[in-house]
């Protein structure tokens, strides 16, 4: 029961944050809403007994990514006058909803009609750091290494792309 309440509250924050993000006219509010959604998502992970994912989400998605985005706004000083005006925002959003609705509806229909499952019983250690770590290094070593490679590439790429000068 209490879990249900927590779920609905979190879902409210999640949907609200996400909607706020795409409707806000000022970038900073989008970022704030997005942060809200990300924190709520972390809560969702906690609710799913994924305690490590919960921490990773907080650490990476909220702590790192939001901070980084805000830092970019602040340090490049993208102030009001550089932000696009978007005079037909309402109309555009409506168009977006019209286009996205069938896709979402299709998935939801598929889920509702062809998917019936319940949560499996899980051990206490499910989702903890030790357990996830064991799984990660037992059967997911290659993806793990590849992801590290990807991160390295992204690191170098980010440095190269954002470097000043030299490029004409």
């Amino acid at each position: 029961m209490s879990e249900s309440i927590i779920f609905y509250v979190l879902a409210l924050f999640l949907i609200g944050g996400a909607s706020g993000m795409i409707t806000a006219r000022r970038t900073i509010f989008s970022a704030a809403s997005f942060m809200l959604a990300m924190i709520a998502l972390a809560g969702m992970f906690a609710l799913l007994n994924q305690s490590f994912l919960f921490l990773a989400q907080l650490l990476v998605a909220v702590g790192a990514i939001i901070t980084l985005s805000m830092l970019v706004i602040v340090s490049v000083n993208i102030s009001e006058r550089y932000i696009p005006k978007e005079p037909h925002l309402g109309r555009d959003l409506l168009l977006g909803v019209v286009i996205a609705a069938p896709i979402v509806a299709l998935i939801i229909t598929a889920l509702r009609t062809h998917f019936a499952a319940s949560f499996a019983p899980i051990p206490d250690t499910f989702g903890t750091l030790a357990s996830i770590g064991a799984t990660l290094f037992a059967s997911w070593v290659l993806p793990f290494e590849l992801i590290s490679l990807l991160l390295l590439a992204a690191l170098i790429g980010a440095v190269v792309i954002s470097r000043k000068g030299e490029r004409s």
């Binding site: 069938p102 229909t109 598929a110 009609t113």
Partner: peptide, 11 residues
């Protein structure tokens, strides 16, 4: 989206 509509209609 159109494909989805089609599938929804067929489903």
């Amino acid at each position: 989206s159109l494909l989805s509509l089609l599938l929804l209609w067929r489903l």
